[in-house]
Simulated assay, not measured.
Amino acid sequence: MDWFLNVTPDFKDEFDFEVDSNDLRERIQLHLEQKPIREIAQIDKRTGIEIYENFNQFLWCCSYAMFVVFDEGIQKPSLNGVYKGELDMSNPFVRRAMELFGRAISLFETYDKAPFYNLPNPEKYHEFEQFYIERTSGVYCAAMTFILLHEFGHQYFGHLDYYPSDTESKQDELTADEFAFDKMATHFETERSTTYKFGIIVGLSSLIFVDKTLQGGDRHPDPDQRLVSLIEKMNLNELDNLWGVASLAFKLWGLHFNKSILKPSITEHYKQMFYDTLNDINGIKGSS
């Protein structure tokens, strides 16, 4: 809540204005949903912003898996000259992160909280995993900030005051993405710059796991294009690790849905890895 309400010095005033002048209910409601994920987040003037614990759980796990698998499975082996395009499953960090990802994505089909307490989690953990878990929680806070800002953006731009056409609905989603991005971009020159950018990437990447088509349907933009639009807006250096993190999100999607992009490719730099992965994605996108 602190990250959200204080994302910029004037944001709390903007939030209060919508509450006082435009009838937004001053509440963020957390649904304790001990069942498969069906909703991500939403906003309604009468209920305020609504978020769901089961998706939030998935989002933290997704943050951890993308962080750890990239760092331990791709980045460090690349720096040591031993990366061959395969993840080293003998590495305990990689192995447990992949197991956590598998459990997390199962939340779209079933709900069983017990296994998560034996895997990396933000509530109780060993010193061995403290480094990654504590930094993951920062990335998760940034990702949740992006999602909350996106929902608030719909209120800010008056999207709740009319029922849009399908084309208007897709544009409204992109406008809300831009609103959230611009607020968080005020931190891009601070010491938390990477965390905020990482959070935006994870927040958008989480949407690609909803189904195996990578299509947004009639009323939402395709999730891969939403990610491409904002990562390009970050103006990252071609060597920036975040290109590789975003690429890994698609690799994990392919792994889960048995698509033919399972191996992280060996490339000159991570930006090339990202666009090579997109080329693979475009060849299979929409297939069942």
Rank of each mutant, 00 (worst) to 15 (best):
M1S: 15
D2A: 07
P9E: 13
P9M: 08
D10A: 14
D10Q: 15
F11W: 12
F11K: 05
E14R: 14
F15C: 03
D16Y: 06
E18L: 14
E18I: 05
S21K: 12
L24A: 03
Q29S: 10
E33P: 02
I40Y: 05
R46L: 07
T47A: 05
G48T: 04
G48H: 09
I49D: 03
I49V: 11
I49Y: 02
E50S: 11
E53G: 02
N54A: 13
N54K: 08
F58A: 11
F58V: 05
C62H: 10
Y64C: 09
M66F: 05
D71N: 12
D71E: 11
D71K: 12
G73D: 00
G73L: 04
I74K: 00
I74G: 00
Q75H: 12
N80Q: 15
G81K: 04
G81R: 00
Y83L: 09
K84N: 10
E86F: 15
S90M: 13
P92Q: 06
V94D: 02
A97Y: 00
M98E: 14
S106C: 01
F108N: 03
E109D: 14
D112S: 11
K113F: 13
K113V: 15
K113W: 11
N118H: 09
P120L: 02
P120A: 08
N121S: 09
E123D: 13
I133N: 02
E134C: 02
E134K: 00
R135M: 01
G138Q: 07
I147S: 11
H154Y: 11
Y156T: 04
G158A: 03
D161T: 02
Y162V: 10
Y163M: 08
P164W: 03
T175I: 15
A176F: 03
A180E: 10
D182P: 08
M184I: 02
F188D: 01
E189H: 11
E191G: 08
S193Y: 06
T194G: 01
K197M: 11
S205R: 11
F209Y: 03
V210T: 09
V210G: 03
D211N: 14
D211F: 08
K212W: 01
H220Y: 10
P221W: 05
P221S: 02
R226T: 00
V228S: 00
S229R: 15
L230Q: 05
E232A: 10
E238Q: 13
L242C: 04
V245L: 06
A246P: 02
K251N: 14
W253N: 01
F257P: 07
N258F: 11
L262A: 15
L262R: 14
S265R: 15
K271A: 00
D276K: 09
L278P: 00
L278I: 08
D280A: 13
I281F: 01
S287M: 15
S288N: 07
